[in-house]
Amino acid sequence: MGLAKRIIPCLDCENGRVVKGVQFVDIRDAGDPVEVARKYCEAGADEITFLDITASHLGRQTTIETVKAIASQVFIPLTVGGGIRTLLNIQDMLNAGADKVAINTAAVDNPDFVREAAERFGSQCIVVAVDAKRVDEDNDSLRWEVFTHGGRKRTGKDVIKWVREMVDLGAGEILLTSMDRDGTKIGFDLELNCAVSRSVSVPIVASGGVGNLQHLVDGILIGEADAVLAASIFHFQEYSIQEAKTFMNKAGIEVRESASAE
Protein backbone atom coordinates (compact mmCIF):
# COMPACT_ATOMS: atom_id res chain seq x y z
CA MET A 1 0.00 0.00 0.00
CA GLY A 2 1.07 3.54 -0.57
CA LEU A 3 0.59 6.65 -2.60
CA ALA A 4 -1.44 6.07 -5.78
CA LYS A 5 -0.27 7.35 -9.15
CA ARG A 6 -2.72 9.96 -10.36
CA ILE A 7 -4.72 10.16 -13.58
CA ILE A 8 -5.54 13.74 -14.49
CA PRO A 9 -7.87 14.65 -17.34
CA CYS A 10 -7.00 18.06 -18.70
CA LEU A 11 -9.61 20.52 -19.85
CA ASP A 12 -8.07 22.96 -22.30
CA CYS A 13 -10.59 25.76 -22.39
CA GLU A 14 -11.22 28.65 -24.69
CA ASN A 15 -14.10 31.08 -24.23
CA GLY A 16 -15.71 28.81 -21.64
CA ARG A 17 -15.64 25.64 -23.77
CA VAL A 18 -13.36 22.61 -23.55
CA VAL A 19 -11.12 22.25 -26.57
CA LYS A 20 -8.05 20.20 -27.41
CA GLY A 21 -5.54 21.38 -29.90
CA VAL A 22 -3.50 19.04 -32.03
CA GLN A 23 -0.06 20.52 -31.49
CA PHE A 24 -1.94 23.69 -30.51
CA VAL A 25 -3.18 24.35 -34.04
CA ASP A 26 -6.18 22.26 -35.09
CA ILE A 27 -8.81 22.60 -32.37
CA ARG A 28 -11.89 20.44 -31.73
CA ASP A 29 -14.72 21.01 -29.22
CA ALA A 30 -15.37 18.57 -26.38
CA GLY A 31 -18.00 20.36 -24.34
CA ASP A 32 -18.93 22.37 -21.30
CA PRO A 33 -16.13 22.45 -18.69
CA VAL A 34 -18.42 22.17 -15.66
CA GLU A 35 -20.23 19.13 -17.06
CA VAL A 36 -17.00 17.53 -18.23
CA ALA A 37 -15.31 18.09 -14.84
CA ARG A 38 -18.25 16.66 -12.93
CA LYS A 39 -18.38 13.65 -15.23
CA TYR A 40 -14.65 13.00 -14.73
CA CYS A 41 -14.95 13.38 -10.96
CA GLU A 42 -17.75 10.81 -10.88
CA ALA A 43 -15.78 8.53 -13.21
CA GLY A 44 -12.87 8.46 -10.75
CA ALA A 45 -10.44 11.10 -12.00
CA ASP A 46 -7.88 11.83 -9.28
CA GLU A 47 -7.58 15.49 -10.11
CA ILE A 48 -8.70 17.93 -12.80
CA THR A 49 -6.44 20.36 -14.62
CA PHE A 50 -8.09 23.33 -16.25
CA LEU A 51 -5.93 25.23 -18.71
CA ASP A 52 -7.31 28.44 -20.14
CA ILE A 53 -5.52 28.68 -23.47
CA THR A 54 -6.91 32.11 -24.25
CA ALA A 55 -6.26 33.64 -20.85
CA SER A 56 -3.02 35.29 -21.87
CA HIS A 57 -4.84 37.39 -24.40
CA LEU A 58 -8.40 37.90 -23.19
CA GLY A 59 -10.26 38.84 -20.01
CA ARG A 60 -10.15 36.50 -17.06
CA GLN A 61 -13.58 36.93 -15.52
CA THR A 62 -15.11 34.09 -17.57
CA THR A 63 -12.40 31.75 -16.35
CA ILE A 64 -12.96 32.74 -12.72
CA GLU A 65 -16.69 32.09 -13.05
CA THR A 66 -16.04 28.70 -14.69
CA VAL A 67 -13.59 27.73 -11.93
CA LYS A 68 -16.17 28.73 -9.30
CA ALA A 69 -18.82 26.59 -10.99
CA ILE A 70 -16.48 23.59 -11.24
CA ALA A 71 -15.27 23.92 -7.64
CA SER A 72 -18.79 23.94 -6.22
CA GLN A 73 -19.53 20.57 -7.85
CA VAL A 74 -16.18 18.79 -7.92
CA PHE A 75 -14.59 17.62 -4.66
CA ILE A 76 -11.22 16.52 -5.95
CA PRO A 77 -8.17 18.75 -6.45
CA LEU A 78 -8.42 21.34 -9.20
CA THR A 79 -5.42 22.95 -10.88
CA VAL A 80 -5.91 26.08 -12.95
CA GLY A 81 -3.42 27.42 -15.47
CA GLY A 82 -3.26 29.86 -18.32
CA GLY A 83 -2.35 33.51 -17.95
CA ILE A 84 -1.39 33.33 -14.25
CA ARG A 85 0.90 36.38 -14.07
CA THR A 86 0.38 38.12 -10.73
CA LEU A 87 -0.15 37.29 -7.06
CA LEU A 88 -3.66 38.73 -7.49
CA ASN A 89 -4.37 36.25 -10.32
CA ILE A 90 -3.37 33.43 -7.95
CA GLN A 91 -5.47 34.83 -5.12
CA ASP A 92 -8.48 35.10 -7.47
CA MET A 93 -8.13 31.50 -8.62
CA LEU A 94 -7.65 30.11 -5.10
CA ASN A 95 -10.65 32.12 -3.91
CA ALA A 96 -12.69 30.76 -6.82
CA GLY A 97 -11.91 27.27 -5.52
CA ALA A 98 -8.72 26.19 -7.30
CA ASP A 99 -6.30 24.16 -5.19
CA LYS A 100 -3.24 24.78 -7.33
CA VAL A 101 -2.25 27.21 -10.04
CA ALA A 102 0.06 26.41 -12.93
CA ILE A 103 2.52 29.16 -13.82
CA ASN A 104 4.26 29.07 -17.18
CA THR A 105 5.20 32.24 -19.10
CA ALA A 106 5.24 34.46 -16.00
CA ALA A 107 7.89 32.19 -14.43
CA VAL A 108 10.09 32.52 -17.51
CA ASP A 109 9.64 36.31 -17.60
CA ASN A 110 10.36 36.63 -13.89
CA PRO A 111 11.55 33.52 -12.02
CA ASP A 112 11.29 35.39 -8.73
CA PHE A 113 7.51 35.42 -9.18
CA VAL A 114 7.55 31.70 -8.32
CA ARG A 115 9.41 32.42 -5.07
CA GLU A 116 6.96 35.20 -4.13
CA ALA A 117 3.98 32.98 -4.97
CA ALA A 118 5.31 30.01 -2.97
CA GLU A 119 6.11 32.21 0.03
CA ARG A 120 2.69 33.82 -0.03
CA PHE A 121 0.47 30.82 -0.79
CA GLY A 122 2.69 27.81 -0.01
CA SER A 123 4.58 25.51 -2.37
CA GLN A 124 1.72 23.01 -2.29
CA CYS A 125 -0.37 25.19 -4.59
CA ILE A 126 2.36 26.38 -6.96
CA VAL A 127 2.77 24.22 -10.04
CA VAL A 128 5.28 25.29 -12.66
CA ALA A 129 4.17 24.27 -16.15
CA VAL A 130 7.09 23.62 -18.48
CA ASP A 131 6.65 23.27 -22.24
CA ALA A 132 9.72 21.38 -23.43
CA LYS A 133 10.99 20.77 -26.94
CA ARG A 134 13.98 18.74 -28.11
CA VAL A 135 16.76 20.81 -29.57
CA ASP A 136 19.42 19.15 -31.68
CA GLU A 137 22.26 21.56 -32.10
CA ASP A 138 24.58 19.34 -30.09
CA ASN A 139 24.07 15.84 -31.38
CA ASP A 140 26.07 13.96 -28.78
CA SER A 141 23.59 14.41 -25.94
CA LEU A 142 19.84 14.83 -25.50
CA ARG A 143 18.78 18.35 -24.68
CA TRP A 144 15.41 20.03 -24.24
CA GLU A 145 14.63 23.71 -24.23
CA VAL A 146 11.82 25.61 -22.51
CA PHE A 147 9.25 27.18 -24.83
CA THR A 148 6.41 29.58 -24.01
CA HIS A 149 3.31 30.97 -25.72
CA GLY A 150 1.95 27.53 -26.56
CA GLY A 151 5.22 26.41 -28.08
CA ARG A 152 5.66 29.46 -30.31
CA LYS A 153 8.42 31.20 -28.40
CA ARG A 154 11.85 29.81 -27.63
CA THR A 155 13.47 30.89 -24.36
CA GLY A 156 17.01 29.51 -24.62
CA LYS A 157 16.60 27.87 -21.18
CA ASP A 158 17.68 24.27 -20.65
CA VAL A 159 14.76 22.26 -19.25
CA ILE A 160 16.74 20.35 -16.62
CA LYS A 161 18.42 23.47 -15.24
CA TRP A 162 15.10 25.29 -15.38
CA VAL A 163 13.10 22.75 -13.36
CA ARG A 164 15.85 22.65 -10.72
CA GLU A 165 15.73 26.44 -10.46
CA MET A 166 11.93 26.40 -10.20
CA VAL A 167 11.95 23.81 -7.41
CA ASP A 168 14.66 25.74 -5.55
CA LEU A 169 12.42 28.81 -5.73
CA GLY A 170 9.47 26.90 -4.27
CA ALA A 171 7.54 25.08 -7.02
CA GLY A 172 5.65 22.17 -5.43
CA GLU A 173 5.00 20.25 -8.64
CA ILE A 174 6.11 20.28 -12.28
CA LEU A 175 3.60 19.91 -15.10
CA LEU A 176 5.84 18.77 -17.91
CA THR A 177 4.52 18.93 -21.47
CA SER A 178 6.47 17.67 -24.45
CA MET A 179 5.75 20.07 -27.30
CA ASP A 180 7.14 17.48 -29.69
CA ARG A 181 4.53 14.94 -28.58
CA ASP A 182 1.54 17.10 -27.71
CA GLY A 183 -1.41 16.09 -29.92
CA THR A 184 0.52 13.32 -31.69
CA LYS A 185 -0.93 10.34 -29.75
CA ILE A 186 2.39 8.47 -30.04
CA GLY A 187 3.15 8.53 -26.31
CA PHE A 188 5.00 10.70 -23.79
CA ASP A 189 8.59 11.78 -24.37
CA LEU A 190 9.80 9.20 -21.83
CA GLU A 191 13.44 10.28 -21.89
CA LEU A 192 12.38 13.83 -21.10
CA ASN A 193 10.10 12.68 -18.28
CA CYS A 194 12.68 10.42 -16.73
CA ALA A 195 15.43 13.04 -16.94
CA VAL A 196 13.24 15.66 -15.25
CA SER A 197 11.83 13.29 -12.63
CA ARG A 198 15.35 12.29 -11.56
CA SER A 199 16.51 15.91 -11.44
CA VAL A 200 14.08 17.24 -8.86
CA SER A 201 12.48 16.17 -5.59
CA VAL A 202 8.91 17.27 -6.32
CA PRO A 203 6.18 15.27 -8.12
CA ILE A 204 6.12 15.35 -11.93
CA VAL A 205 2.95 15.32 -14.01
CA ALA A 206 3.67 13.93 -17.49
CA SER A 207 1.78 15.50 -20.37
CA GLY A 208 1.71 15.48 -24.15
CA GLY A 209 1.26 12.59 -26.56
CA VAL A 210 -1.05 10.05 -24.89
CA GLY A 211 -2.83 7.92 -27.50
CA ASN A 212 -3.49 4.67 -25.63
CA LEU A 213 -3.43 3.13 -22.18
CA GLN A 214 0.04 1.60 -22.54
CA HIS A 215 1.33 5.17 -22.91
CA LEU A 216 -0.01 5.96 -19.42
CA VAL A 217 1.75 2.89 -18.02
CA ASP A 218 5.01 3.80 -19.77
CA GLY A 219 4.80 7.36 -18.42
CA ILE A 220 4.80 5.98 -14.87
CA LEU A 221 7.08 2.95 -15.16
CA ILE A 222 9.62 4.25 -17.69
CA GLY A 223 9.11 8.02 -17.50
CA GLU A 224 9.01 7.84 -13.67
CA ALA A 225 6.15 10.33 -13.55
CA ASP A 226 4.02 10.66 -10.42
CA ALA A 227 0.89 11.52 -12.37
CA VAL A 228 -0.24 11.31 -15.98
CA LEU A 229 -2.29 13.93 -17.75
CA ALA A 230 -4.36 13.35 -20.87
CA ALA A 231 -7.18 15.06 -22.71
CA SER A 232 -8.39 13.75 -26.03
CA ILE A 233 -8.35 10.00 -25.24
CA PHE A 234 -10.79 10.77 -22.43
CA HIS A 235 -12.73 13.62 -24.04
CA PHE A 236 -13.64 11.58 -27.09
CA GLN A 237 -14.36 8.51 -24.95
CA GLU A 238 -11.76 6.34 -26.58
CA TYR A 239 -11.08 5.10 -23.05
CA SER A 240 -12.78 5.67 -19.70
CA ILE A 241 -10.90 6.64 -16.54
CA GLN A 242 -11.93 3.27 -15.11
CA GLU A 243 -10.43 1.39 -18.08
CA ALA A 244 -7.23 3.38 -17.62
CA LYS A 245 -7.06 2.51 -13.93
CA THR A 246 -7.76 -1.17 -14.49
CA PHE A 247 -5.08 -1.31 -17.19
CA MET A 248 -2.51 0.47 -15.02
CA ASN A 249 -3.34 -1.69 -12.03
CA LYS A 250 -2.72 -4.84 -14.12
CA ALA A 251 0.66 -3.40 -15.04
CA GLY A 252 1.51 -3.28 -11.33
CA ILE A 253 0.84 0.42 -10.78
CA GLU A 254 -0.94 1.46 -7.61
CA VAL A 255 -4.05 3.48 -8.47
CA ARG A 256 -7.05 4.77 -6.55
CA GLU A 257 -10.12 2.64 -7.15
CA SER A 258 -12.90 4.74 -8.57
CA ALA A 259 -15.76 5.47 -6.22
CA SER A 260 -18.11 3.50 -8.44
CA ALA A 261 -15.86 0.45 -8.20
CA GLU A 262 -15.68 0.44 -4.41
Binding site: L3, A4, K5, R6, P77, E173, S201
Partner: peptide, 30 residues
Protein backbone atom coordinates in the same frame (compact mmCIF):
# COMPACT_ATOMS: atom_id res chain seq x y z
CA UNK B 1 8.91 12.89 -3.78
CA UNK B 2 8.11 15.81 -1.49
CA UNK B 3 5.46 17.18 -1.07
CA UNK B 4 3.60 13.94 -0.37
CA UNK B 5 0.91 14.77 -2.92
CA UNK B 6 -2.02 12.61 -3.95
CA UNK B 7 -4.32 9.84 -2.79
CA UNK B 8 -3.06 7.55 -0.06
CA UNK B 9 -4.66 4.86 2.07
CA UNK B 10 -5.62 5.59 5.66
CA UNK B 11 -5.79 2.71 8.11
CA UNK B 12 -8.15 3.48 10.96
CA UNK B 13 -6.81 2.86 14.46
CA UNK B 14 -10.16 2.49 16.16
CA UNK B 15 -13.80 3.23 15.68
CA UNK B 16 -14.52 6.93 15.79
CA UNK B 17 -17.79 8.65 14.83
CA UNK B 18 -15.97 10.47 12.02
CA UNK B 19 -15.01 7.16 10.40
CA UNK B 20 -18.61 5.91 10.46
CA UNK B 21 -19.65 4.17 7.22
CA UNK B 22 -16.22 4.75 5.65
CA UNK B 23 -14.32 1.66 4.57
CA UNK B 24 -11.02 1.13 6.37
CA UNK B 25 -8.06 1.80 4.01
CA UNK B 26 -10.06 4.27 1.93
CA UNK B 27 -7.89 6.73 0.04
CA UNK B 28 -7.85 10.40 0.97
CA UNK B 29 -6.11 13.35 -0.70
CA UNK B 30 -2.89 14.55 0.93
Amino acid sequence: KVPHMGWNEVSFDAGHPLWANIKNLSRFYF
